[in-house]
């Protein structure tokens, strides 16, 4: 059974329909990326899945007992709020300290346990958010533009971490991203969203789909080139090119 099933979902804010008739599923262990222009409803879709947005039609079904690890888009901690990394991580999960240490290691930032959250760098902060999401051994990780504010190297490293985490824990990953080429190479499946699902499939299929090209226009030229370029140097591209050929 799929971890998350979205059926005929519509979301409205007042007069404004941001999502209409969206169908999608997330199977266990897969990395799915949602791409789409600004205002295409990416964040609304994620919010609908965690129950933060009322649905105007359709259904979101979560596998019973599904544990969600959520990494928010940006988390502003007011400088007036003193809180250590450890306290932050254990805020909603009353887990042993040892689990925090392990989660921080998985996220690639050991030794931060006693630091103040407000003193972390952008990259460290995002990794602590990731560690916090991992602490309860989630079945699925949800990431909403988790690399905003990181430079290109930082975000590439962050996505590598996500892949490593998936390999280590086997959890599914659903993420939103603007950084098309980085994300595309790391995903099993890409969903291209613009109020509705324009197209979906393996990264190569989506990248060559006319709907996708229409949405991202000339900007994709570079991203696509980069994407292809990267795959020229990978050895595991047989699967995606096969799917592209289908």
């Amino acid at each position: 059974m799929a971890l998350v099933t979205v059926e005929d979902l519509s979301v409205q804010y007042g007069e404004n329909t941001v999502l209409h008739h969206v169908d999608m599923t997330i199977e266990s262990g897969e990395i799915v990326t949602i791409v789409g222009p600004n205002g295409s409803g990416k964040t609304s879709l994620l919010r609908a899945i965690i129950g933060a947005t009322p649905l105007s039609a359709g259904r979101v079904t979560l596998n019973p007992g599904l544990k969600i690890g959520y990494v928010p888009q940006k988390l502003h901690i007011d400088p007036t709020l003193p809180i250590t990394v450890e306290r932050f991580m254990r805020l909603t999960n009353r887990v042993p300290r040892q689990d925090c240490v392990k989660a921080l290691e998985s996220a690639g930032v050991p030794d931060l346990l006693n630091n103040q959250m407000s003193r972390l760098s952008g990259g460290q902060f995002q990794r602590v958010l990731l560690a916090r999401a991992l602490i309860d051994r989630p079945d699925i990780l949800l990431l909403d533009e988790a690399t905003q504010g990181l430079d290109q190297r930082g975000s590439a490293a962050f996505y590598q971490q996500i892949e490593a985490v998936r390999k280590e824990t086997g959890c599914a990953v659903l993420m939103i991203s603007h950084e098309l080429h980085v994300v595309m190479s790391a995903s099993d499946r890409v969903i291209c969203l613009n109020g509705h699902v324009c197209c979906e499939g393996s990264p190569a299929v989506v990248a060559s789909a006319p709907e996708y090209r229409a949405l991202f226009g000339t900007g994709t030229g570079g991203a696509l080139a980069l994407y292809r370029h990267e795959h020229d140097h990978h050895h595991d591209h047989s699967k995606s090119s096969q799917e592209a050929a289908e």
Binding site: A52, Y70, T92
Partner: peptide
């Protein structure tokens, strides 16, 4: 206390919890 703190930090984090 914990819920108030979480909600103060981030709304979505609260929903996801």
């Amino acid at each position: 206390w914990s819920e108030l703190l979480t909600a103060t930090l981030n709304e979505e984090l609260a929903y996801a919890s």
